[in-house]
Computed example of a mutant assay.
Amino acid sequence: MSLDNNISKEIFNELSFSNEEIEIINAVFFRETFKKGTQLLKAGDNVDRQYYIIDGCLRSYHIDTQGREYTVQFGIKDWWMSDYTAFFSNSKAIMNIEVLQDATVYRILDEEKEYLYNQIPKIESFFRKKLERAFAAFQRRILSELSLTAKQRYLNFINSFPNIEKSVKNYHIASYLGITTESLSRIRKELSHK
């Protein structure tokens, strides 16, 4: 199913398009729905696509050589998700992406994105700004891992993802925060007594 005009406005908020540009956008974005538990990407896969999330929740994670999972990102409405290390370097995936809640996404392939950039240059600027903000957010996340307590990281998490906590498993949240599930329970108990 192709993208309609309302969705193109949602994805490219604050940009306006001619009818011809909307047709180009409609031709490169495809709507897909996935059930909870679906693996969209596995480590070792080729990465040639990005997903724009309309609804639901996705999680990207890495598994180390000892089999431990590290949640890198949760993706919710109006977020983009892929294994960007592999996507931008044309290498194999190092991340996994799974659907945590039934999700509707719009997919765009790398080659279609390049076509979009050439046909509608303001979209390239839009994506550049999104990437700049994402890079800044990842940098803030790294700094918080280095400098904040587990409790402070948890409070930041619930402020950033107020509707996710009840919908995802505790070990996903704990792995995102870099703590054990026991530590997460202890922090929640502490906060509930305040």
Rank of each mutant, 00 (worst) to 15 (best):
S8W: 05
E145K: 15
K130V: 05
K92W: 09
I108W: 01
H62P: 09
I7L: 11
T104K: 06
R141P: 04
Y84R: 02
K36N: 06
N163F: 10
T33A: 13
I94T: 08
Y171V: 07
T104H: 04
L100S: 01
K122M: 01
N156G: 04
V168D: 00
A43Q: 07
N26I: 09
A43F: 06
T38W: 07
Y51W: 11
S192V: 01
I179A: 00
E98I: 06
K151D: 04
Y106W: 10
R107K: 15
E21A: 07
S167C: 15
R188T: 02
A27W: 06
S192M: 04
N13Q: 13
A93Q: 07
F12R: 01
F127A: 00
G75L: 04
W79L: 01
F161N: 05
F138V: 07
T65P: 15
T71Y: 05
P121Y: 00
I94Y: 12
E114W: 11
Y52Q: 01
S175N: 03
N13M: 09
V28I: 10
R140G: 10
Y70C: 07
I53K: 00
S147M: 11
I11K: 11
D110P: 11
T104Q: 07
A93T: 04
E145C: 13
N170V: 12
H193K: 14
N90R: 11
K194W: 15
F88Q: 03
R31A: 08
K166P: 11
I164H: 01
V72D: 07
I22V: 09
L116W: 04
